[in-house]
Simulated scan of single mutants.
Amino acid sequence: MASLQSKIFVGDQDLARVLDGSLRLAAKGTPPSPAPVLSSGPAVTKVQQALIALGYPMPKYGADGGFGGETGSAVAAFKRDWHLSPADPVVGPGTMGALDREMVAYERSSPTPGPVNPVKPDGPTPSGTSKTSHLSDQFFTDLKALCAEMNCSPVDLLGVMNSESGVKPWAQHPTSKATGLIQFMPDRLKEYQFAGGPDEFKKLSAVAQLPYVRRYYWGYRKYLTSAGRMYQATFLPATLAGTDEDAAICGKAGPYAWAYTANPGLDTNKDGVITARDLSDRIGSLQRGPYWDELMQRLARA
């Protein structure tokens, strides 16, 4: 018989019953079939903490031990991302097993999983000898842990962030409102149930944005083999499957001509198409100078 393995879930008898199908977690009023429903208590709190740690925020109520609409939305989003059917606001055996597996992976690189709380907002880079003092030591530690979990290079991810935002969590495109370390589009933040939209998201620190970065890339992690492929996942993720470093992601005459027209500077060799190799070259062109050198020094010390 399967048993719970993650530190946050192991030993909880209610969650063990959810895993074996004799109990479900859901909101009050959910029909008690095919198993009875638990709507509050420590088991619900642990599931809420796990979901928040995995990048499914609950900004209004957090891990309060009550299975309400906010928790239900987070559960349904998790089930959609992990292709669990039906993607409803109910934690049953399949969802419990998937959560447990994800938390085992999370705990392997993050010893104390728990809710992700916004910390003091980052402000402009202060003057002085440090060019990266808007980033905490914890950011570099967490970045390394995240990349170890996804089996990708922290230098590559930092390179993508540098290209997208200058590794500044408050960065925001004035027209599209793409915001944050990897320039999350407003629709993506809505999908993640982030309350307040882009203007609130840019108030989060770099550390507080990392769980959202994790959630964005997690489904693409098998493709993150180079800086260019990671940038491809950020730029046009629909093109990842069936392509390699030299395949056309978009081009002046297609495919995705609109994406090429909006980003001609990414065609670094000016051949009319953008490839993952072009994207790697774009990132590489920015990986120099005192600011990048300091980022690398701090990453090495983390």
Rank of each mutant, 00 (worst) to 15 (best):
S280W: 05
G65P: 00
A302T: 02
A276D: 06
T268V: 15
T239N: 10
D122N: 14
E149K: 14
K79H: 04
E70G: 00
G166S: 02
G68A: 08
P111H: 13
A300F: 04
Y223M: 04
N263M: 06
D137F: 06
P89V: 04
G251R: 06
G265M: 08
A148M: 15
T234Q: 15
W218C: 09
S85K: 10
D20W: 07
S176D: 07
V160F: 15
S109L: 09
V119Y: 05
G123L: 05
L299S: 08
M96S: 03
P255E: 07
Q5S: 05
S205G: 15
Y192F: 14
R301A: 10
T45C: 02
D267C: 12
D12E: 01
S3Y: 09
G68T: 04
S165P: 05
E107A: 09
Y192M: 15
R17L: 04
T225I: 01
E149I: 11
L38S: 00
V10M: 03
A35M: 05
S163R: 11
T175E: 13
L181Q: 10
A233D: 02
L299A: 05
L266H: 13
P174I: 08
S285Q: 14
M185W: 04
A241N: 04
D271A: 10
L158S: 07
P169H: 11
V104P: 00
S73A: 15
S226E: 06
T112I: 09
E164H: 10
T225D: 12
C250E: 07
E149A: 11
V116E: 12
Q287P: 14
I283E: 02
K168Q: 11
T132L: 11
F78A: 06
S73Q: 14
R282F: 15
G94E: 09
T243L: 05
S40R: 14
G62T: 03
D137E: 09
L143K: 09
F67T: 00
P237W: 07
L157R: 11
W218Q: 13
P86S: 01
L266P: 07
P57F: 13
G66Y: 10
K120A: 13
D88Q: 08
S40H: 12
P126N: 03
Y223V: 08
T175A: 12
D244Q: 04
C147K: 09
D12F: 02
S22I: 07
G123I: 00
A247G: 03
T132N: 05
T129S: 11
L240Q: 05
C250F: 08
M230V: 09
A259K: 10
D12C: 00
L15R: 01
P32I: 03
P121V: 06
L295A: 08
L15D: 01
A74M: 03
P186C: 02
K202Y: 08
R108G: 15
A259T: 04
A206G: 00
A77R: 06
G272I: 12
K177I: 08
A43L: 00
M96L: 11
Q172C: 05
V47A: 01
Q5G: 14
L299K: 07
G94Q: 10
G197I: 09
F9R: 00
Q297H: 08
K168Y: 13
L146H: 09
T71W: 08
E107M: 02
P121H: 12
N162M: 14
R101G: 05
Y220G: 00
R229H: 10
M230G: 00
A98G: 03
A74R: 02
R214H: 14
E294G: 06
V167T: 14
D278I: 06
S127I: 03
